[in-house]
């Protein structure tokens, strides 16, 4: 039964990986700029889940000591607390994530105003034309966007 234990103990991780990879797939495979950002968020949130699950201790509870009426902490050694450090790291990471998202959305708004589209394929098409025009006036060059 050692295999079953192993599977139960690791099932969570594999599910997180499925979520992560769905998010990553949206980022790399979908051409809509907003949707890419949604994918990025899903990807990152799944990574956060992985972190938080590191901190989980079976039978544990949230790492906040109970406080009595006088404001004194009740420290009961029999209570198991989950590991608070991953929570702290992920709080930081969530904040970084929303910062990135807002910046990306602002960029998308600017891109729409200039290109009048938020589809990667259309933008690439426009840029190909721009570089073709460049090449015509300034001589041929190798490797467009890449």
């Amino acid at each position: 039964m050692i295999y079953l234990d192993f599977i139960i103990g690791h099932l969570n991780y594999w599910l997180f990986i499925v979520l992560m990879m769905t998010g990553l797939y949206i980022v790399v495979a979908r051409g809509n700029l907003v949707k890419k950002i949604v994918g990025l968020n899903i990807f990152q949130t799944a990574v956060f889940m992985l972190y938080i699950s590191i901190g989980k201790v079976t039978g544990g509870t949230a790492p906040i000591y109970p406080v009595d009426n006088q404001g004194h902490m009740q420290v009961d050694p029999s209570i198991i607390y989950s590991n608070p450090l991953p929570h702290v790291l992920i709080l930081t990471a969530i904040v970084v994530g929303i910062a990135t998202t807002s910046l990306a959305l602002a960029l998308i708004i600017r891109i729409r105003e200039v290109y009048d589209t938020i589809e990667e394929e259309d933008i690439l098409e426009i840029e190909r034309k721009l570089s073709a025009a460049d090449n015509k006036t300034h001589g041929p060059a190798m490797g467009g966007r890449a």
Binding site: F48, M49, I52, A62, Y81, S82, H87, I90
Partner: peptide
């Protein structure tokens, strides 16, 4: 996250 005890998160 709540079920994983990360209430702040």
């Amino acid at each position: 996250f709540v079920t994983l005890d990360a209430v702040d998160v």
